[in-house]
Simulated assay, not measured.
Amino acid sequence: MFTIMIIDDNEQLQNEIGNLLITNGYSILKPKDFNQIPQIVKENNPDLILLDINLPNDDGFKICTEIRSFSKVPIIFITSRNTNIDELMAITLGGDDFITKPYNTQILLARINALIKRAYPNDTNMDIVEYNNLKLNILSSTIEHNGNSEELTKNELKILYYLLINKGKIVSRVDIMEYLWDSSMFVNDNTLTVNIARIRNKLEEIGLKDFIKTKRGQGYII
């Protein structure tokens, strides 16, 4: 599963694009701190970036230039600024595509899909995540280990996937619930506890005990 970062200070639009991408099989990141965008990109390593030009502090052109100093991640500018000069600057500074608002959602998806395929032509396992002998199959919603497998519910799949893409990091319960909320899945604290317990039981069933560790007062880590 590819991860797309949506850098736009219009929260409603950010949510709309995010829901569209999740529905079409992508994972999303929605940064809120526009002072630290390059650092957030470094820390999260997204597979593609949707970048607005008009942002609260540095504009999209400057951010694109900074990102290009350390990364070749595909960048699509999505903006209401539609002059030829804006488009020329976007491409000259390292953008890979330029789409003006309002946009057709199917055209946006087609541009994203095409750019992903060009940028990652050898990534044939986009629907499988593997770590420490665990294989998470996103399409079939299953986990596998040493020939054993278990099915996951939609919430269990999302939670385990989020922990896996943040492997080596402590992920707070709040972070997980916000991630599920962005995926249009509404989970409260008690429901999250139940889901984590069920995931652990299923991991143990296939031979992976203590795969998800609890950091008391902080969250979970794989």
Rank of each mutant, 00 (worst) to 15 (best):
D8A: 07
D9E: 11
L13P: 01
N15C: 09
E16S: 13
G25P: 03
S27Y: 04
S27I: 04
P31W: 07
N35P: 02
I37E: 00
L51M: 11
L55A: 04
L55S: 05
N57F: 15
D59C: 05
G60P: 04
G60N: 01
G60T: 02
I67P: 00
R68P: 03
F70S: 05
S71A: 10
I76D: 00
T79F: 04
R81K: 15
N82G: 13
N82T: 08
N82M: 06
I91D: 03
G95S: 04
P102A: 01
I112K: 07
L115H: 04
K117R: 14
R118W: 04
R118P: 04
P121E: 02
D123Q: 13
D123R: 11
D123E: 12
T124D: 12
N125K: 14
D127H: 12
V129W: 10
N132M: 14
K135A: 09
L139A: 13
E144G: 06
E144M: 11
H145C: 06
G147W: 10
L152Q: 05
L152P: 01
T153W: 08
L157W: 08
L157T: 05
Y162E: 00
N166M: 09
G168I: 12
I176G: 02
Y179F: 15
L180G: 00
M185E: 10
V187T: 08
N188G: 05
N190V: 13
N201F: 11
K209T: 14
D210P: 04
K215E: 06
Y220T: 05
